[in-house]
Design a binder for these strands. Sequence first.
DNA 1: TCCGTAGTTGACCGACCGGTCAACTTGTGC
DNA 2: GCACAAGTTGACCGGTCGGTCAACTACGGA
Lengths: 198, 198
Amino acid sequence: MSDSRQRLIDAATRLFLGGSFHKIGIAEICSEAVVNKGTFYHFFPSKLELLLEVIELYAAEMFVKLDDLAKSDLSPPQKLRGIFLVSQRDNETWKAQHGSAPGCFLGNVILELGANEPEVRAKAKAALARWNTAIVPIVEEFFRAEKIYNLDAKDAAEVLIGIAQGANVMAKAKNDPKVFRAYGKLAVELIRAVANPS
Amino acid sequence: MSDSRQRLIDAATRLFLGGSFHKIGIAEICSEAVVNKGTFYHFFPSKLELLLEVIELYAAEMFVKLDDLAKSDLSPPQKLRGIFLVSQRDNETWKAQHGSAPGCFLGNVILELGANEPEVRAKAKAALARWNTAIVPIVEEFFRAEKIYNLDAKDAAEVLIGIAQGANVMAKAKNDPKVFRAYGKLAVELIRAVANPS
DNA sequence: TCCGTAGTTGACCGACCGGTCAACTTGTGC
DNA sequence: GCACAAGTTGACCGGTCGGTCAACTACGGA
């Protein structure tokens, strides 16, 4: 069994995250994967099809991280903040290796292609929905701990994802993954505030 | 006096917002602006240089909108929420004409080019800082109205911008500008909550 | 009227784009 | 040992990329 296909996916994941879909050429992906162009088209019908697969895998990886977080033994508020720390760690790791905070691959893809590639947007939307299901248990646990009964966990989870996407934009703009810490802290207060309006 | 230069900027603004920097070619910009390629390079040394100018103008336009909002006679909480309604209206207008929510041009540019083009990132960072100065009066007014004395208006303004960026990502992912309303509502509660921690 | 400058034109450049293809090698089941 | 599929190769395709350039026109000031 050849691993060319996997090498192509790995290479594309790295290159797309570090650059952008339209900037990275197939030749570059093949070069990074040490594979010939013909082999690329043996495994993928088009560059876009490869992207869809990369999105899928990125989404799955992130889902696992969030799921692990949900199953961890951290305190409920710590878990909530942990959602942001996951992104922070990813950004820090990448920046240490490449010099720039990359943001969230899903957010990058949505903003670059969301308006013109319906398949990409649909895939990204589905990925966000999956992340939502990973976060809901965290939110529910937080609700139980804080005796919050008047909020919908799914709605809250979605807002958290949105704020995390915003934090990714700011982290990339400032090239500083530390911004996530502030947003994580605020998110906890936000949920409490919405549950107990003044 | 020729208006070719302005037409090029207008065309590029439209095309970049609807697509992405790397996807749009100079030929396409020239075609949209009804200008020859040679003329393009008479006014701009490179495609990137044009982008920088487009960013500048987009940032200035948004600054005016936020500044007008600050000077309006809306109530303090309404002004806070208005920050999000500005983006919502922009997205709605564009979607009505082109079918897709475009997000925020600044966010789009940051995620696509922020990691690889230091000039772009610097420009975008500066633009975010200018928006911050437009929002600070809104936040300060809100602080006065709510008798909040323990928070820094500049910090709060920055968080608001970050959340608005996140809302733009979500709006583009769902192709639904209505999401802004929820984030605007939440932002008000968030500020209150951080000021009065439980 | 003439000059200089600003603006315009479109052919042209080499490089690269995404994608194709027919020939070839390698691995597998029988 | 053979057949067949899976995988690999790299030359090749038309088209487009960002950018250059020398020739040309339009126009305001002296």
